[in-house]
């Protein structure tokens, strides 16, 4: 029982680390571009397929394949922004919402069109779990945790140490004030889309390496990522990352009591509970009229 619990905790932390990347991105998009981005899962999926294509079909070395995947997801994100969302800035949220459904459909079925709906796996060396006390840890999970934390640290550094990062943070803290202070929105938006696409792409590749690559890889965890972002409070990107670890833990621990087949439904309950108990999230600011 305790071993099982410990195992679930490990799985939860790993899932949380992966989720943190798209959750942070969702919070940034929600705050800066002003809508919950429904095509975020596609960025994850596309990166995973691109990396798989490079590694599994073209037989490129793994690091190169990962870079290729990230480049493709960054290009996709920039394409979404420049090709669609940019034109909708200033329109009611509903427009952006629906456009992002369109983008999601286009990309998801674009993936199915190109790669079929069969599952794929990365050509990774066979690995053996390492026993650490009570739990068995896959070496891959350690790599994965390292990458996820590295990415989060990178974002943290970017928000502190670079000008564009500080500006992005300012816009995310207070979109209205930032607009007044004359921060150029065009560059912030572009940089934001590159950042969140790379983060989502990294999460997609990690998830694909850990499980399998499928056309709904991103979509399947999108709601959990949303739950994390809402839980952390969308006004605080790092709150979203913290929220992701909690969502990862809760959803993995939930499996102990809830049938596995309902795993994806946990996200809904988490969102509901978060919204009802603390509508602006754990780290969100109070509503000010």
């Amino acid at each position: 029982m305790i071993a099982e619990l410990a195992q679930h905790i490990v799985d939860g932390v790993v899932l949380g680390a992966i989720l943190a990347l798209p959750a942070l991105g969702l919070a940034l998009v929600w705050r800066i571009a002003g809508f919950p981005h429904l095509a975020h899962g596609s960025l994850m999926t596309i990166a995973a397929y691109a990396a798989w294509l490079a590694a599994g079909v073209w037989h490129l070395p793994l690091p190169l394949a990962v870079l290729f995947g990230l480049a493709i997801s960054a290009a996709t994100g920039v394409g979404m922004h420049l090709g669609v969302y940019r034109y909708l800035a200033g329109r009611p949220m509903l427009n952006l919402f629906i456009a992002s459904i369109g983008v999601e459909l286009f990309l998801r079925y674009g993936v199915i069109f190109s790669f079929g709906s069969d599952f794929q796996t990365f050509p990774l060396p066979a690995e053996r779990g390492v026993r650490l006390g009570l739990v068995v840890v896959r070496p891959l999970d350690l790599v994965l945790l390292g990458v996820a934390f590295g990415a989060l640290l990178g974002v943290w550094w970017m928000f502190r140490g670079t000008q564009i990062g500080r500006r992005m943070r300012a816009v995310s803290d207070n979109p209205f004030l930032a607009r007044l202070s004359g921060i150029s929105p065009a560059r912030i938006h572009l940089a934001m889309w590159i950042l969140v696409s790379v983060l989502a792409g990294a999460a997609g590749i990690l998830l694909g390496a850990r499980n399998v690559i499928s056309p709904t890889l991103g979509w399947d965890v999108l709601l959990l990522a949303f739950a994390a972002a809402i839980f952390g409070g969308i006004s605080n990107p790092f709150g979203a990352a913290v929220g992701a670890f909690l969502m990862g833990l809760v959803s993995q621990l939930g499996i102990m009591w809830i049938p596995t087949s309902y795993e994806e439904g946990i996200a809904f309950f988490l969102i509901m509970i978060v919204l009802l108990v603390r509508p602006r999230g754990l780290f969100g600011e109070a509503v000010r009229a």
């Binding site: 669609v84 983008v103 999601e104 286009f106 998801r108 674009g110 199915i112 069109f113």
Partner: peptide, 26 residues
Amino acid sequence: FSANQQSALRFMIIGLALVLLIVFRP
């Protein structure tokens, strides 16, 4: 295209149509 691809293409067109509608003829 294969049957699978054709049905995927159908949804790609729907997605694209949705985007174009929202951008140009909301």
